[in-house]
Write a protein that binds this DNA or RNA. Sequence first.
DNA 1: ATTGCACCTGCAAGGCTATTGCAATTGGCC
DNA 2: GGCCAATTGCAATAGCCTTGCAGGTGCAAT
Lengths: 138, 138
Amino acid sequence: MTHHATRTLQELGYRLTPQRTLVWDQLREDGGHLTAEELCRRVQSQFPHINISTIYRTLELLVNLGLVKETHLGSGGRHFEVEEEVPHHHLVCEKCGRVEHVHGEDLNGADTALLKTRGFELHDALLFGSCSACATTA
Amino acid sequence: MTHHATRTLQELGYRLTPQRTLVWDQLREDGGHLTAEELCRRVQSQFPHINISTIYRTLELLVNLGLVKETHLGSGGRHFEVEEEVPHHHLVCEKCGRVEHVHGEDLNGADTALLKTRGFELHDALLFGSCSACATTA
DNA sequence: ATTGCACCTGCAAGGCTATTGCAATTGGCC
DNA sequence: GGCCAATTGCAATAGCCTTGCAGGTGCAAT
């Protein structure tokens, strides 16, 4: 297990099981957004015995510890990704399903504009549209 | 049934049933974002016999005809609202759950910025954060 | 190394939301 | 009024996720 997650888990009194290690490793390795089922399949290639309920319980734990972030990408399904230091927003292509990351400064100050006009403090933006590849095709 | 939905349905060869009329009426009346279950409960107060599967089938039809829009508000559940002429984005308060609408111009040109920097054509933004009431409390 | 035990896991059952097959009903045209 | 395909209600089913429980296992103390 790379990263400090090992330490974090143990320092807080949680056991370091192979299941937890593998779930964390797969999330880090992928870099993208995995569903619980996808994650389960990948972990099973290295540890066939693992059960989907353990995946869910581990994800719940990691999310509560702030190590993993749950995102909804519009389809109704839940996706999970490693929580990063620099928060980012998501661009989701409605045609090909591709997901890109953008940082706050790329939104042209929309956050401060919303704060001024609405008193709304933006944390997380989910932006649906057509990605560069699909927009030109259409 | 207000609006032109009546005509639209009949013109396209669909039957105008009381179930469909009531679903449409409730969606218009509410103005907000209803789940299929909420919608079912409301319609049942006027038409107790209606079944949830009819609600789903009617929603599917109305969505396909462009009369209703399905939105995911982050919780994983599906919500439905009347499709409006002027498209809007959603502000979702992560604390109290309140949903507000904002129009494109309130995003400070974030859409054109994304188009320039990423070639991404924004259709629909789902913005999570703290609404004015909750932000001041926190 | 061994032991002990609370934590963790696997399994199976259950819950919730949404979909589907089918028989009965019904809107809308004649 | 009568016909017939579109529509509905019902029950069964499918996904996704959660939970209860019995057995297994990290890990700290010995």
